[in-house]
């Protein structure tokens, strides 16, 4: 029986946010080995913010991502290794480097209104013979018709599939089905969903998308990822089994690697705390969470005030520097209201 959709596991890319980009080569090997045994076809490895993301703004990688990609390629017997690239952060040189060491799927991500900045990177990925996937981040911020226009641009640049990416974990089941169905009907290429769990809807949204005939779905073991986490791969596979959607993936093997390798890295992953929920509620980019927690602590202001202000300002993915700006502004406001009159 053929699988109802293709699963891409992003524990080693999106999950990198949750552990502040501190993955080691041994951890990467252990995760890849487990996922490969379970039958996961595509495994994404990179800095959480994509190739070239190691920086002051997003956090420095403990180990150079190219070394992690090389280890993943070496460890995988069947799975193919994917990389993420955000134009403006990573460059074509980074993509060539990743392809040279064996990455074979290129996922090119832009904000959901800025697809045209992906043109040169997608064209390069096709030239390099890579499977090319478009990633429209913060898809909840635009109406489904506008999202389709952007997706069509990516398709015209050669994308083999375009993803609806709920980077803020802000989409309800209806939001998801509307966008997936719009893309499924309007595109000839494949369609994917990358869900986050800030409103506890990642698995439900993914199942709804599978019901709409989606081609690709992302997950991360134990949900390890930005914000309150991603769609947990092992729960998605279990739920698909119950719902009668074939995945071709061995649940026991997934549970072994999730429990033995990934759970110890982040014991509290899966708890949707006040700040995690606030991301989904305010529609704020999930990767901001740990940076906002840190700034809240350093400047003595409330983390959810930071997140709400970022939402009000319409800050998009990549603008982590504005977290410091907002924290300083809140600090200044608090100081001036405390001042003696």
């Amino acid at each position: 029986m053929t699988a109802a959709f293709r699963l891409t596991d992003s524990t080693l890319r999106d999950g990198s946010h949750a552990i502040r980009h501190q993955f080691t080569v041994d951890q990467v090997r252990a995760v890849v080995r487990g996922l490969d045994r379970a039958g996961v076809e595509v495994i994404e490895v990179a800095h959480g913010d994509g190739l070239g993301g190691s920086s002051f703004n997003y956090g420095f990688s403990r180990i150079d991502e190219m070394d992690l990609i090389r280890a993943a390629v070496d460890e995988a017997d069947n799975a193919r290794i994917a990389v993420l690239l955000l134009p403006g952060i990573g460059t074509k040189d980074d993509l060539v480097h990743a392809a040279n060491i064996g990455a074979s799927v290129a996922r090119i991500a832009t904000h959901s209104t800025e697809a045209d900045i992906s043109h040169q990177h997608m064209a390069l990925a096709k030239d390099l013979g890579m499977e090319t996937v478009g990633f429209l981040m913060l898809s909840h911020m635009v109406a489904s018709g506008d999202l389709l226009d952007q997706a069509k641009r990516m398709e015209s640049y050669g994308a083999d599939a375009v993803y609806v990416v709920d980077s803020a974990g802000a989409m309800t089941i209806r939001d998801t089905m509307e966008r997936i169905s719009m893309l499924k009907h309007g595109l000839d290429c494949g369609v994917g969903l990358h869900a986050h769990n800030n409103l506890s809807l990642a698995v439900a949204n993914s199942l709804a998308a599978i019901g709409e005939g989606i081609d690709q779905v992302d997950g991360c073991l134990i949900g390890l990822g930005a914000g309150a986490g991603n769609c947990p791969t092992e729960i998605l596979v279990a739920a698909c089994d119950k719902a009668g959607y074939e995945t071709g993936i061995d649940l026991t093997e997934l549970l072994d690697v999730a429990t033995d390798v990934v759970r110890p890295l982040s014991p509290n992953q899966g708890v949707i705390d006040r700040d995690g929920l606030m991301l989904g509620y305010a529609g704020v980019y999930g990767s901001f969470l740990l940076h906002a927690k840190r700034a809240a602590e350093v400047y003595g202001v409330a983390c959810d005030d930071i997140l709400l202000e970022l939402g009000r300002r319409g800050i998009v993915g990549g603008q982590e520097d504005m977290i410091i700006d907002v924290a300083l502004e809140l600090r200044q406001a608090a100081d001036s209201s405390d001042a003696p009159r």
Partner: peptide
């Protein structure tokens, strides 16, 4: 290192 971001806010 330089990073460029486009923001579509209205």
């Amino acid at each position: 290192k330089a990073i460029m971001i486009l923001n579509p806010a209205d």
